[in-house]
């Protein structure tokens, strides 16, 4: 039954990894601006240049 102890530790390590990535994200400034990304994600990819008419 020692497997449960092993599992708990493993689970904590995995979760700890995510906690680390949360630290990284926060210090990287991902939570500084929570609005603009919601606008940014709506942009389509570049249109092909067919409507480009030189003047």
């Amino acid at each position: 039954m020692a497997v449960i102890i092993f599992l708990v530790i493993a689970a904590l390590l995995v979760a700890g990894g995510f906690l680390m990535s949360f630290f990284w994200a926060t210090n990287d400034g991902q939570f500084d601006d929570t609005y603009t990304p919601s606008v940014r994600i709506l942009f389509d990819d570049e249109k092909p240049a067919e409507n480009h008419k030189p003047l």
């Binding site: 906690l19 949360f22 630290f23 926060t26 210090n27 400034g29 939570f31 500084d32």
Partner: peptide, 14 residues
């Protein structure tokens, strides 16, 4: 202001 804000977010997360 970001630094104070970030610390609080980290505290809540942890």
């Amino acid at each position: 202001q970001n630094k104070v804000q970030r610390r609080l977010i980290l505290q809540i997360g942890v």
